[in-house]
């Protein structure tokens, strides 16, 4: 009886291990530039020269972050350095540990995201004090100077929201629903605030259900639209909720201008078909690539970028005009 169970447990462990390895090694291959398969170790390392950079983010290895990772891997391959990718899966504690470990390993540079500045600023300041160059990426535009980082590579959410607001103005919308897929997420809230800043009409911001349940999202948006006939624009602050918004509007037969954030294949297809007006692309591939490049240039050539200002990777926009091209690139995993 117990014997049988052990067998099952072992099997499960193997499957799990294989799955987690498969995940890491594979994305390296997809980047199309790392010919070897170094990925049998738990931590992914792209082969390179003597320099090692640690990229420590709150990545969940979802669709968004896998593109960042590809950017970083591509830069590592281009420059001949080693990049250690440490996904913190939204846990600042893990990130603090990873930063401290990287410092004690004597890394040549750290790229870090700052989802929780209160927890992460201290360890990063410590890294800077140890003479390690630090660049913040993705989130952290408010704190990178405080840390003493070289620069910040990313998109500020407010600026991205501003961009979306201008698009809604151009489309002639008067009342926009800013639909959120998480409650209390600062970044998403800032997108909506940015929208409200630049948009001429009224903005209603509301949580519409998690991405894990698209049926709930769609019906909630449907109910919101039905209750408020004035809404003629929806900004989904994520790709999944944007598609839910599209379905809800179609079900109701409402003529609504829909904009989104970030990209998934079906969202790109919807833009190509003209059902969705645009999506805000923060070009996160750049966040991975540029972070590694800037660290490399700083270490080898003492260059600094940005002149104390952040380097913005977005907002770029995908519209029906350029959607086809972006789709092709997205299939390569670089957009």
């Amino acid at each position: 009886m117990t014997k049988k169970f052990r067998w099952l447990a072992a099997l499960l462990a193997i499957v799990l291990f294989a799955a987690s390895c498969g995940d890491d090694s594979d994305t390296t291959d997809d980047a199309g530039d790392a010919g070897d398969s170094a990925g049998d170790e738990a931590v992914d390392q792209t082969q390179g020269g003597d320099l090692t950079f640690h990229i420590i983010t709150h990545s969940d290895d979802g669709p968004f972050w896998s593109v960042v990772k590809r950017g970083a891997d591509a830069a590592a391959a281009d420059l001949g350095v080693t990049v250690v990718w440490k996904p913190g899966v939204n846990d600042a504690n893990v990130m603090v540990q990873d930063i401290e470990a990287a410092v004690s390993e004597g890394t040549n540079g750290i790229g870090a995201s700052l989802p929780d500045p209160a927890a992460l600023v201290g360890p990063l300041q410590n890294a800077v004090a140890n003479g390690i160059p630090v660049i913040t990426l993705n989130s952290g535009s408010n704190d990178y100077q405080n840390i003493g980082a070289l620069t910040h590579v990313g998109q500020t959410e407010v600026v991205a929201g501003n961009g979306a607001g201008l698009r809604f103005n151009a489309a002639g919308a008067t009342k926009v629903l800013c639909a959120q897929q998480e409650q209390g997420n600062v970044g998403l809230t800032e997108r909506c605030e940015g929208l409200a800043e630049s948009f001429d009409g009224e903005v209603v911001t509301a949580f519409m259900g998690l991405d894990a349940d698209t049926a709930e999202q769609q019906n909630t948006i449907n109910a919101t639209l039905a209750a408020d006939p004035d809404i003629d624009g929806i900004l989904g602050v994520g790709p999944v909720i944007t598609m839910s918004a599209l379905r809800a509007a179609e079900d109701l037969g409402r003529d609504v201008t829909i904009g989104g954030f970030d990209m998934t294949p079906d969202l790109l297809a919807a833009i190509e078909a003209g059902d969705v007006a645009f999506t805000v692309d923060q070009q996160q591939y750049l966040q991975g690539y540029l972070t590694v490049l800037f660290l490399y240039l700083n270490v080898t050539n003492q260059n600094t970028v940005g002149g104390g200002l952040p380097v913005l990777t977005g907002p770029g926009f995908v519209t029906p005009d350029n959607a086809a091209a972006v789709v092709a690139l997205s299939e390569q995993g670089t957009r």
């Binding site: 987690s20 498969g22 995940d23 997809d30 669709p63 299939e331």
Partner: peptide, 13 residues
């Protein structure tokens, strides 16, 4: 789910 999606489709979706 994450691993296989990434492996075979190169995407989470």
């Amino acid at each position: 789910k994450l691993g296989l999606a990434n492996r075979f489709v190169g995407q989470i979706q």
